[in-house]
Amino acid sequence: MRRTGLALTVLLAVAAWVGCSAPRSEVKPGETKGASGKFEVRVGANFELSGAIAQWGKESKEGIDLAVEEINADPANPFRLAVIFEDNASEDAKSKAAATKLIHQERVHVIVGSVASNKTLAAMSVAQEARIPLVTAHSTNVNITRKSGEYVFRTCFNDEFQGPFMAKFALEDLKAKTAVLIVQKGNAYSEGLVASFEKTFVEGGGKVLAVEAYYQNETDFQTMAVKIKSANPDCVWLPGYYHEVALIVKQVRAQGFEKPFLGTDGWDHQDLYKLGGPAVKDNFFCNHFSSADSSPKVQALVRKYEAKYGRKPGAMVALGYEVMYVVADAARRAGSADPKALRDALATVKNLETVCGTITMTPEREVSKPAVLLKTGETDHLFVKRQ
Results as ranks from 00 to 15, higher is better:
295 S>L: 10
304 K>A: 15
357 G>R: 03
301 L>Y: 06
173 D>G: 00
360 T>R: 07
182 I>G: 01
209 L>C: 12
219 T>I: 12
337 A>M: 03
39 F>Q: 04
113 G>I: 02
24 R>E: 11
137 A>Q: 09
334 A>T: 07
245 V>K: 01
152 V>M: 09
332 R>Q: 14
270 Q>W: 09
177 K>F: 08
302 V>N: 10
154 R>S: 07
83 V>C: 03
213 A>R: 15
131 R>Q: 15
240 G>I: 11
55 Q>E: 14
70 E>H: 08
298 V>H: 05
223 T>R: 11
48 E>C: 08
181 L>F: 01
256 G>S: 08
381 H>Q: 14
129 E>Y: 07
136 T>M: 04
170 A>C: 12
8 L>H: 02
301 L>F: 04
206 G>Y: 10
260 P>Y: 09
127 A>L: 00
113 G>L: 01
255 Q>P: 08
335 G>K: 09
70 E>M: 06
164 P>F: 10
233 P>N: 10
329 D>K: 07
356 C>A: 10
7 A>G: 11
261 F>C: 06
140 T>S: 12
178 T>N: 07
60 S>K: 00
330 A>E: 07
259 K>Y: 10
191 E>W: 06
172 E>P: 08
304 K>Y: 03
104 H>F: 15
205 G>H: 13
105 Q>W: 03
125 S>E: 11
100 T>E: 13
280 V>S: 09
279 A>M: 02
256 G>M: 11
278 P>S: 10
44 G>H: 06
141 N>L: 02
16 A>V: 13
195 A>C: 02
247 L>C: 02
244 E>C: 04
318 A>Y: 00
147 K>T: 09
45 A>S: 14
171 L>K: 04
57 G>E: 01
380 D>R: 15
284 F>D: 11
10 V>L: 15
327 V>C: 03
278 P>L: 09
139 S>Y: 00
39 F>S: 04
261 F>H: 08
13 A>P: 06
40 E>N: 09
208 V>K: 08
327 V>K: 02
309 Y>G: 04
186 G>K: 13
190 S>Y: 06
41 V>K: 08
150 E>M: 05
63 G>E: 05
232 N>L: 06
246 A>W: 09
169 F>C: 09
92 D>Q: 15
45 A>I: 01
45 A>Q: 01
160 E>V: 12
246 A>H: 07
32 T>W: 04
134 L>W: 05
377 G>V: 01
46 N>K: 09
130 A>S: 00
217 N>V: 05
259 K>M: 12
232 N>K: 14
8 L>K: 05
335 G>A: 08
64 I>K: 00
263 G>M: 00
